[in-house]
C-alpha cells in the first residue's frame, strides 16, 4: 500500500488553527501528511523527539517531530531539515506533532526560492483544481 501524498506546508502553518483544532486533526489525523522544512534546534534521542524552528513574520515557530521511524540519524543542531510525515496529536506536546517518515538534512537550501515555488504551485492548483486546493486552504485561512 502506498502512503498518502505529502503536500508541502510551511512550518508556520502546521501549528496554525486549522491543523490544531481537535476535530480537523482527528479527521485528518494520520491521513494528513505533509512535508515541511526548518532548522533543527533540539534533539532528545531518549524521547525520539526533535524540534524544528523557523522564523516567519518576526515570530518563531516550533514544530515537534517524532523521530522514532527515522532513527538513527545524524542530528546537526542548527541545520535546515525537511521532514515528511504524518500529523499526530500527543500528550505533553503543545499543539501537534509530526511523526516523521523522512527527515533529510538540506542545509544550504535556498529557502526564499523554495517558498516562492511552493506558492507558485499552490496558486497554480488554486486556479485549476479547487478540490485539491480546498485542503491546503484550511491551513492558510488561519494565517
Amino acid at each position: 500500500m502506498l502512503p498518502a501524498v505529502a503536500v508541502y506546508y510551511f512550518p508556520w502553518e502546521v501549528n496554525s488553527g486549522a491543523l490544531q483544532d481537535g476535530e480537523s486533526v482527528r479527521t485528518f489525523g494520520s491521513k494528513t501528511n505533509f512535508a515541511h522544512f526548518s532548522r533543527l534546534t533540539q534533539y532528545e534521542p531518549e524521547k525520539s523527539r526533535a524540534s524544528l524552528t523557523t522564523q516567519h513574520a518576526s515570530k518563531e515557530h516550533h514544530v515537534v517531530i517524532n523521530t522514532s521511524f527515522v532513527e538513527p540519524f545524524n542530528p546537526i543542531i542548527g541545520a535546515q531539515y525537511i521532514v515528511l510525515g504524518e500529523i499526530e496529536t500527543a500528550q505533553g506536546v503543545d499543539g501537534v506533532r509530526v511523526c516523521a517518515r523522512v527527515l533529510n538534512c538540506v542545509d544550504g537550501v535556498n529557502i526564499a526560492l523554495l517558498q516562492k515555488v511552493i506558492n507558485e504551485q499552490r496558486s497554480f492548483f488554486r486556479e485549476r483544481r479547487p478540490d485539491l486546493w480546498s485542503l491546503l486552504q484550511r491551513s492558510r485561512a488561519c494565517l
Binding site: 538540506v106 542545509d107 537550501v109 526560492l113 523554495l114 511552493i118 507558485e120
Partner: peptide
Amino acid sequence: DPVMAVQIEWMSDVL
C-alpha cells in the same frame, strides 16, 4: 540533491 536545488528547479519548470 543535498540543497534541494534540483527539486526547486523541477517544480518551477513543470509549472
